[in-house]
């Protein structure tokens, strides 16, 4: 069944990672991808601004990262969640933290919607 990009755009609270998003998010996602390497994780922990600068992030991208505005990064910034959640390895934010922020909830509020707290 063929479908258009318009079809894909219509799910509420969902930002389909398509070509437009991937082009827009290229720098950001490349920065997140770099966190697969221990030396880059160490570099971030040492001096986050320097690593963001090395990957040529814009002022907006840097600001949203400092603010941990995960929703804006995904929606307007083109960040892909599989790449962005690697930030947790240097900031300590779990996927649930990031998810709660997406929903505009605290972590506790989000976890209260789940059956079992420890698993995922």
């Amino acid at each position: 069944m063929s479908e258009t990009r318009q079809d894909l755009a219509k799910i509420e609270g969902t930002y389909v990672f398509d070509g437009a998003q991937s082009s827009k998010g290229y720098r950001l996602n490349k920065f997140f991808f770099s966190l697969n390497r221990a030396e880059n994780r160490a570099a971030y922990k040492e001096d986050p601004e320097a690593l963001m600068e090395r990957f040529g992030l814009t002022d907006w991208e840097k600001r949203k990262l400092r603010e941990k505005d995960w929703l804006a990064l995904a929606r307007e910034g083109g960040a892909n969640i599989y790449f962005m959640y690697k930030m947790g390895s240097v900031t300590g934010d779990s996927l649930q933290h990031i998810g709660a922020a997406f929903r505009g909830e605290t972590l506790e509020e989000f976890l209260s919607t789940r059956k079992v707290k420890g698993a995922r």
Binding site: G13, A74, G99, F102, R103
Partner: peptide, 9 residues
């Protein structure tokens, strides 16, 4: 599962 956006979770 959905891992991003307001529809997370």
């Amino acid at each position: 599962h959905q891992l991003h956006g307001e529809r997370f979770g």
